[in-house]
Structures are given as C-alpha cells and as structure tokens.
C-alpha cells in the first residue's frame, strides 16, 4: 500500500522511503521511538498529509479514501461538553451510519452505562474505549490505531485486543502502533520497526528473530538437583538442546529473545548519526 513514501517537513525527514503493505485479516504493528514517523505514516494513510515522494494507496485509491477507514489518534480528544451518546451519534452521521450502530458499539466497548454522561467526566480508559467505538463505525476495512493501549489497565487492554481480533477475523486489516512491546508479540501478525523515518525491519516475530540471530537462553534442571543456564547463539540452539536432553533433565526451558531485545537490536544495528 505504501511505496517508497517520503515525507519532509522543511528539512526534517519524517518518513524516508518506506515501502510496506498490509493484507486483509492481518495485524501489523508499527514500532519505533517517539518521532520515528509512526503518526506521520498514519496521517499519510488517512490522506491528511500528502507524500513528498512516492505514493500511498488505501484499498486501491489515491489519495486514500476515508469512508472504509477507522482511525484512533494518539491521546484521543473529544468535544468535552457532549455526552458519549451524542458524540457517537455525531460521528455515526458523519460516516453516514445509523445512530443505532453507534449505540451498539458503545455497548460493545462497555460504555453503555456512561452514555448519558458528559465526556469531560470520562476517565482515560473510557475515552480510549469511546475512541475505539468511533473507529469501528461503519465496519472499516482498515483500522489505524495510534498508541491505542497507552495508559490502559490490563483488563481493558485485553478487551481491546479481543474486539480487534473479531474485526480481523471478519477480514479487516489493522495497523497499530505501540510502545508496549510485550503485548504486541502475541497479538500481531507482523512487525514493522521504524527508526528515524526509515523502515529497518519488517516481518513476523519469528522471521525477525531468525534475521537478528540473537542468542537464546536455555535453562536446565538436572535430576541431581543442579541447575544451569546457558546463553547460546541461535545457530547452536538445537544442538545444545539435543545435548541437554541426552542428560535426561527434570526440566528444560528455552527463552527466545523477546520483542524488546529484537527492537533494541534492529534500532542499534541501523547506522546512527550523532544521537
């Protein structure tokens, strides 16, 4: 969908030649430090910014169509004086959807009890859920979620990913950015790592792991009560396991490098100007 996209603001390169695409039923996570270009990429995909070079296609359309896209901005803000019910009805009308659909979505995100209250009284989690509800209006085929789970408690976060899962199963594509690396590992299909506007890695967690070749931690507990921990290169993993299993251990655990380690690896490998 994105082909060699470049976005400059003055002399700053916000996005420097990113090419990536998402298919339906796929969840893609955008990883990157603040200012890596995640939000700019989303604005490009919404047609709110035009690329300085390259092209952005969303569902085959240039400039991107917005009707089939749902967007949840980072730290979403709403007109504070309106109630949740009024707001979702307003957004539903803007998207040419019946207001009843807004009410159904409010219930889905667990806000039906607070629908009659002014948004000013909502907690951070409630605003975020209202934000998700409005992004889901009109069954969008592409969901763009910018830091959707920042500041949410684990329970709400789990509910959040459940709802996303439903949409992905019904064929929607999801692009989300997050700092919470641990939760993305199991809840996304592919990871794109951005570093100062450049795409430094793109693939499934397993593929990235294979590419990075980071060492694996193997912990073993033997019958004589001794335990040992080995850090072995990824290439020697299976050989090491075979050797340890031959000792007939009581327990054996293998810790693959987490997304944190992968992220640190790819950002560090990328050539870095004075920073």
């Amino acid at each position: 969908m994105l082909e060699g996209v470049v976005k400059r603001f003055g002399t700053t390169m916000a996005v420097a030649g990113v090419t990536l695409s998402v298919t339906f039923g796929e969840r893609l996570a955008l990883l990157g430090h603040n200012g890596a270009g995640k939000t700019t990429l989303m604005k490009l995909m919404l047609g709110l910014a035009t690329p300085s070079a390259g092209s952005v296609r969303v569902l085959g359309e240039v400039p991107p169509a917005r009707q089939p896209v749902g967007f949840l901005p980072e730290a979403v803000a709403f007109p504070e004086a309106m109630t949740g019910a009024e707001l979702i009805a307003f957004y539903a009308r803007l998207k040419r959807r019946p207001p009843a659909e807004g009410r159904v979505l409010l219930r889905r995100v667990g806000l039906d009890g607070a629908a009659g209250r002014r948004v000013a009284t909502y907690s951070k989690g409630m605003r975020q859920r209202l934000g998700l509800a409005q992004a889901l209006l009109g069954q969008p085929r592409l969901l763009l979620l910018d830091e959707p789970t920042g500041g949410l408690d684990p329970e709400v976060r789990a509910a959040f990913y459940d709802i996303l899962g439903e949409r992905v199963e019904s064929g929607a594509a999801v692009i989300l950015s997050s700092h919470l690396l641990a939760e993305l590992e199991t809840r996304t299909d592919r990871i794109a790592i951005l570093d100062r506007g450049r795409l430094v890695a793109l693939g499934t967690v397993d593929a990235l792991r294979a590419r990075a070749g980071l060492p694996v931690t193997v912990r073993v507990r033997l019958k004589d009560g001794t335990a040992r921990t080995d850090v072995v290169p990824a290439a020697d993993k299976l050989a090491t396991l075979r050797r340890l299993l031959a000792l007939d251990p009581l327990d054996l655990t293998v810790a693959e490098p987490g997304l944190d380690a992968l992220y640190a690896h790819f950002v560090a490998v990328a050539p870095c100007p004075p920073c």
């Binding site: 919404l46 709110l48 917005r66 803000a77 957004y91 040419r96």
Partner: peptide, 13 residues
C-alpha cells in the same frame, strides 16, 4: 490545540 480537529478530519469530509 485540543486535539479534536485531527479526529474530525479523519472522517470522510
């Protein structure tokens, strides 16, 4: 400044 414009402009208008 309040951040409501970005969301509004992401709608088909």
């Amino acid at each position: 400044e309040r951040g409501t414009l970005l969301l509004l402009l992401s709608y088909p208008l």
